[in-house]
């Protein structure tokens, strides 16, 4: 069917209120804003409840060291992440293709305390696969980038004047399912283990 005919069918009958460009409603459910410490504490608590391992790091270098320790402990030799996120310490382990990686690392655009969510902006070198294909994934989140609620993120995105990136993913815990007899299993398609390093200072 052509576009015009299709859209004409969606027009309400004459007499319905349809004048001009509609103004979308802005229903807001008010919630008291969180303090800085409260926000961090809630973010960590929500993530842990989802089965995510959360560590606080004072600096980016400290977070990198934590990643190195984890990789060493697990014996991982193939780590996938965007080139801009790599550091020399484990230079021989970086891989481009996330399909064979044992661990994928991503930088989060922000974190959401209320739901224990990390928000990823994909596009360019920030591939979707880094947080999807390896069995284990991890995220760097800067503490100042943690917000109270999903609504805060959505309002910020809506205020951006350029087109959204081709993909934004809100990740809240490991890939999971209860489709087999109601038993919760993790890692059904995406990563079954998730790590979050909260870095105290912004860069």
């Amino acid at each position: 069917m052509n576009r015009a005919a299709f859209l004409a069918r969606l027009r309400r009958p004459p007499g319905a209120d349809q004048r001009g460009v509609p103004v979308a409603p802005r229903p807001r459910v008010q919630r008291p804003p969180l303090g800085d410490a409260q926000r961090l504490s809630l973010f960590a608590a929500r993530l842990k409840a989802l089965g995510v391992v959360v560590e606080e790091s004072a600096t980016l270098d400290a977070a990198r060291l934590a990643v190195e320790r984890l990789c060493d402990a697990r014996g991982w030799a193939r780590i996938a992440c965007a080139p801009s996120l790599r550091w020399p310490g484990i230079r021989d382990r970086w891989v481009e293709d996330a399909r064979d990686a044992q661990f994928g690392l991503s930088a989060a655009a922000c974190g959401v305390a209320g739901t224990g969510t990390v928000v990823l902006r994909h596009g360019g070198a920030a591939r979707r696969g880094y947080s999807l294909l390896p069995p284990v994934t991890g995220f760097f989140v800067y503490r100042p980038d943690i917000v109270d609620s999903l609504g805060d993120v959505l309002r910020t995105l809506a205020a951006e004047t350029t087109a959204l990136p081709p993909c934004i993913t809100f990740v809240s815990g490991p890939s999971n399912t209860a489709d087999i007899a109601g038993v919760r299993c993790v890692g059904v398609h995406g990563p079954g283990e998730v790590f979050v390093w909260v870095i105290a200072c912004g860069e």
Binding site: L50, A82, G114, T115, A125, R128, P166, C167, F170, S172
Partner: peptide
Amino acid sequence: ERITAYVTAITGPRRPGDGDG
């Protein structure tokens, strides 16, 4: 549950320079 493991927002196909999609 409070939120699902993934909420994915897809805006258009892959763009020039994108590593995947």
